[in-house]
């Protein structure tokens, strides 16, 4: 039951965040500070979510470090999201084989 509440709240907030501005917004945001904040927030959120959680995402810090390194290198060279994501996983998997 609690799970249904969590999911409903999650979906409701996510929908409203999209729908309210999409439906009713026509003017531009004036505040330069606020627009700058909105520009930076996605990167800041993803960074805070990823570090240090990524190191615990595979059940072994060592394989996770290998996967993270692969992701950093490939994304540095601008490879597509999906290539980076799957390579990180493949690298972690291969590292796991050697650590057994």
């Amino acid at each position: 039951m609690k799970l249904a509440v969590y999911i409903a709240v999650m979906a409701g907030v996510t929908y409203l965040v999209r729908a309210i501005p999409f439906t009713f917004f026509s003017k531009k945001i004036k505040s330069r500070f606020f627009r700058s904040f909105l520009f930076y927030i996605p990167y800041a959120v993803l960074s805070a979510m990823t570090i240090p959680a990524i190191f615990y995402s595979t059940g072994s810090v060592l394989t996770a470090i290998v996967g993270t390194a692969a992701a950093l290198i490939l994304s540095y060279f601008g490879l597509p999201l999906i290539v980076v994501a799957l390579s990180a996983s493949a690298a972690a998997f291969i590292a796991g084989l050697f650590l057994k």
């Binding site: 979510m49 059940g59 490879l79």
Partner: peptide, 21 residues
């Protein structure tokens, strides 16, 4: 388990691919 635990990093890998460039 070896595969599913390695897949745990997929989402984070994608996040890095969004942040790094």
């Amino acid at each position: 388990a070896a595969i599913s635990s390695a897949m745990g990093i997929v989402l984070y890998g994608m996040f890095l691919a969004i942040i790094v460039p």
